[in-house]
Amino acid sequence: MTATITLETLDKAGSFEAYLAEPANGAAKAAIVVIQEIFGVNAGIRRKCDQLAEVGYLAIAPDLFWRLEPGIELDPDIPDQFQAALGWMGKFDQTQGTRDIEATIRTARDKINGGKVGAVGYCLGGRLAYMTAARTDIDASVGYYAVGIDGLLGEKHAIARPLMLHIAGSDHFVTPDVQAKMHEGLDDQPKVTLHDYPGVDHGFATEFGKRRADEAAKLADQRTMAFFAENLA
């Protein structure tokens, strides 16, 4: 079952929409917050939610750009839309976005009667998954090709629950020097696991479009599902 639901902000001063996917039998084993790329809650993000519901999770993808413009939905394979997405990212308040993720976590937890909640994010969402791991009570988090983690290493000591990061080895947004800093800063953090995927670029695990690298995407997704099975049980 899928639906669009409305969530309140933490301070109750506003509300925003989210895409919800639930298991067909209605009995979710846990919940997962799916954190958008810079392209909004588009068809690819909704498909991520649907796949999680198919294997028994309740999945929620909040519209994090709602303060800028509700309902942004872009295609990264269309150049004008890709450039528009970069513009939205530049205007986005990531701290407020993390608070909206926290509000989503609370809603998700309520919907599964206090059970465990994970998060998985892509691109900007991968960065936000790291911030969520450091700043909220999320039970487990996964970030795909997260951007700018080298600037967040000062928060690594706040990560108290498991975090997995998938790194695209040929990511033109996350250059080799940044990848090296991620390993240097996080390899000794006992709650953090890093996986490298040599030769693939940013966006390799997208559901649709030209960016997908199928073999690496399937391996990363297998690792993600095993990670959630272990940490959200």
Rank of each mutant, 00 (worst) to 15 (best):
M1G: 03
T9Y: 01
T9S: 12
A13N: 15
G14I: 03
S15P: 00
E17D: 00
L20C: 11
E22Y: 04
P23Y: 04
A27D: 10
A27T: 15
K29H: 09
Q36I: 07
E37G: 04
A43K: 11
A43M: 02
I45K: 06
Q51E: 11
A53F: 02
A53N: 03
E54Y: 07
V55L: 14
I60L: 14
P62I: 01
F65I: 00
L74N: 06
D77E: 07
I78H: 01
D80N: 10
F82R: 08
A84K: 11
A85I: 02
G87C: 13
M89K: 11
D93K: 02
G97W: 05
D110Q: 07
G118L: 08
G125M: 12
R127E: 08
Y130P: 03
T136C: 05
I138S: 09
Y144A: 10
I149P: 10
I149A: 14
G151P: 12
L163R: 02
L165R: 05
H166Q: 09
I167K: 08
D171R: 07
V174G: 08
T175S: 11
P176S: 13
A180S: 12
A180C: 02
K181F: 00
M182D: 06
K191W: 05
V192C: 14
D201T: 09
E207S: 05
F208K: 10
K210N: 15
D221W: 08
A226H: 08
E230N: 05
